[in-house]
Write a protein that binds this DNA or RNA. Sequence first.
DNA 1: ATGGTAGGTCTCCTA
Length: 237
Amino acid sequence: MVDWLEIHQPDVLALQETKLVDDSFPQEAFKEIGYHAAYSGQKTYNGVAILCRQAPKDILTDLPNLVDSQRRILGVTVDDIRLLNLYVPNGSEVGSKKYAYKLDWLGRIKDYLQEALVEYPKLIVLGDFNVAPADQDVHDPDIWHETILCSTPEREALKEILALGFQDSFRLFEQEAQSFSWWDYRGGAFRRNRGLRIDLILISKALVPKCTGCVIDKEPRRLTRPSDHAPVIATFA
DNA sequence: ATGGTAGGTCTCCTA
């Protein structure tokens, strides 16, 4: 992580699945290389963090309409940009209790974002959405047809968020076919590029003219004991 | 409903 930050020097890095209580967050290690940190963690599961060059302001970890002990939400303001880092519930299986929780959760996020856009026209919503927006974001749409991460209700929930006035920054630019951000650890999925694009950077309309690129960096996925996700990088003028 | 991998609360649960 420190190596990646030193190479890419992003202004902001949003993390999901930190799986750390706040007292264990290694903020000193990031401070040493010039990054402030905001975080909302818990033991073993979930957890979100934001690392940034400038001190984050107006840190938000809970939404008024989403009372939840699971640490999946982190909002900060950096410069004149509002960021909302999300670790969307995985949902386990279509039709399960966790699936219902996921859809309800996404609906509440949408309701919150409708208000947030009024206060923060320059708004970025990013993170692990656990939804592949369309079949082009899936290595084999037949295998994944109406399964978790790809089902129509999940995609509709994401579309409703986009319809508030967000763009999927990745699709503002020409991209290679079969571009993914997550590959299962099992079955040599990364080697065979059997992945999904579920990690998104959504930007509000005011930011679209400023956005100069969006790419997925597959390099960290090749390392020893990698995350199963690859970082997505959006750049702005 | 399987298996395959990874990691942690470690012989089950979540992803």
